[in-house]
Structures are given as structure tokens and as C-alpha cells.
Simulated assay, not measured.
Amino acid sequence: MKKVIFLSTFLIFAISAVSNAQSTEVLNKKGYKLTVINQDAAFDKAEIVKLEETFFEVYPRLEKEYNKKTLKEVTFLIDTAYGGVAETGGGVVKFSSKYMTKHPKDIDVVTHEVMHIVQGYGDGAGPGWLTEGIADYARNKFGVDNAGANWTLPAFKSTQNYDNAYRVTARFLIWIEKNVKPNLVKTFDKQLRDHTFTDDSWKKETGKTVDELWAAYAANPAI
């Protein structure tokens, strides 16, 4: 009898621990459904609210700008085991609870990651460095508090190259739009989603190859 009582008590405790360690919240707003799964019982609830608010502020703007057919249902997973910063796939954004706890002001990780959902390029659409560069371009343009995270585009360095991805590529794209071809990112974004982007797209859209564009950028990189 004591064993039964002990086992029952243990099971109740175990179920309670799992329940406390993982919570799920579903929000419906502005025509979107956001499901937030939190695996970290110690994760700051105020930070969860910031993640949610950033999504509902940024995602509709990204949809309007780039892809009106983007997913309307998105899941945020606050993951205790994930060792990176964040990653996105299949409409699920996985955040490292450790990273977000250490960097609570880096809220525009949301902007970068949900841009990947809007991109929706699928496999084989184009170079990964361009995909990531466009996502950071979007973060720079639509981010709600990049300054609070001390997140900025890097100054040009001769050791950089256009395929360094992320902020380096984002800055290069901004320079092209300012000096060569306005709205190039929107054009490339659509081509990548339609799987019509090729290496020749640079020359077709700007009159120069990507290497020629980079050489011109390196000669006068001010933006």
C-alpha cells in the first residue's frame, strides 16, 4: 500500500514538473495565429510578451511588403536544449532560452527569423548567403529595437565579401538599392520564392555581375 501511495505521489509530482516546465499559449490577432511553447519554466514571462508583441508588429508588415501568401499560423518554441541563437523551419521558430535570457534586448531575432517564414523559398532556390542577407536586410529595415540590442550593420572592411551573408550581405544590398537598382531586394525575394533566380539575375537586373557590383561597392562603400 505504501508503495502504491509513493508511486502515485511520484507520478503526480512528475506530471506537475512537466506541466510547469512546458507551457503553451495560443494568440489570435490581426488574422494570425501564434502558438508559443515554452520549455523553460524559469524563462522571463515579460520576455515572452516581448516576443509576441514583436511578432504581431513586424510579421504583418513583412507580409505586406514581400509575400501576401505567407503562413498565417506560426509557432514559437523556446527551447532549453538548442545551442544556437534561433532557427526557423516549417513555420516554427526555435529560440534558445539560454541566449534570449542572456540577451533579452535582442528582440529583433524575431524579425530576422519570421522573415525566413515570409521568404518561404524552399530547397534549391538560391544561395544561402543571399537568403540570410535578405533576412538581415529586413531586420535592419523593419526591426523594432535594433538599437536596444546594439545591433548595427558593420562598416565595410577589405576582408569582407558579398557572400559573407547576414549583415555584410545586407549592407551590400542596401548600397545596391541606393546607388544602382532600387527595390532589388523585393525583386530577388520574389525570384527566389518562384525559383527563377540564377547567378545571371544580378546582371539582368543591374547591368553588372555580382563581382562587378562588389568591386564598385568596395571602391565607395558609403550608404
Rank of each mutant, 00 (worst) to 15 (best):
F13E: 05
V92P: 00
V114F: 05
D136V: 09
K157P: 01
T152F: 09
S96M: 03
Y166R: 07
K203H: 08
S97I: 01
K204N: 15
F13A: 15
Q119I: 13
V93I: 15
K181C: 08
K45Q: 15
A218Q: 09
A14C: 13
D123P: 13
G83W: 11
G83P: 08
K68S: 12
G122F: 04
N38G: 05
D189N: 12
A21L: 12
R193H: 12
K105L: 08
I48K: 07
T152L: 05
D211Y: 06
T75S: 14
G89N: 10
F156R: 03
D123C: 10
V18K: 07
K102Y: 02
F197V: 05
L213N: 10
Q191T: 08
Y66I: 07
F6K: 11
F95I: 08
T152A: 12
M100P: 00
E52Q: 15
S158T: 15
L213S: 10
Q39A: 10
P60V: 02
T111N: 01
G89S: 11
Y99C: 01
L27K: 11
D44P: 04
G133V: 06
E47N: 13
E73G: 07
W214Y: 14
V109D: 00
I223F: 08
Q22I: 13
H103I: 00
D189R: 02
G91D: 02
I107N: 02
F6C: 05
E205V: 02
S201M: 02
Y99A: 02
H116P: 07
I12R: 10
K30C: 06
G83I: 14
H103P: 00
I223D: 11
N161W: 04
N179Y: 08
K141N: 09
R167K: 15
A218Y: 05
F95R: 07
P154E: 08
P221T: 03
D136P: 00
T187M: 11
K64T: 14
D189M: 05
G143L: 00
T169C: 13
Y82V: 05
W129D: 04
K186Q: 14
G84P: 11
G89P: 00
V168W: 03
V58Q: 08
P154Q: 08
A125V: 02
P154G: 10
L184H: 04
T131G: 02
G207M: 06
P127L: 08
R171Q: 06
A41D: 05
T169V: 09
A86N: 01
K186A: 13
N220T: 13
D211H: 09
V26N: 11
T88K: 15
D200G: 10
K203F: 11
L184W: 07
Y121H: 05
V85C: 01
T88H: 14
M100W: 01
V109A: 03
Q22V: 13
A21F: 10
I176H: 00
V185I: 12
N38D: 12
P154K: 12
L77N: 06
D199F: 10
G126W: 04
L71H: 09
D194P: 09
S16M: 06
N20W: 12
D200R: 11
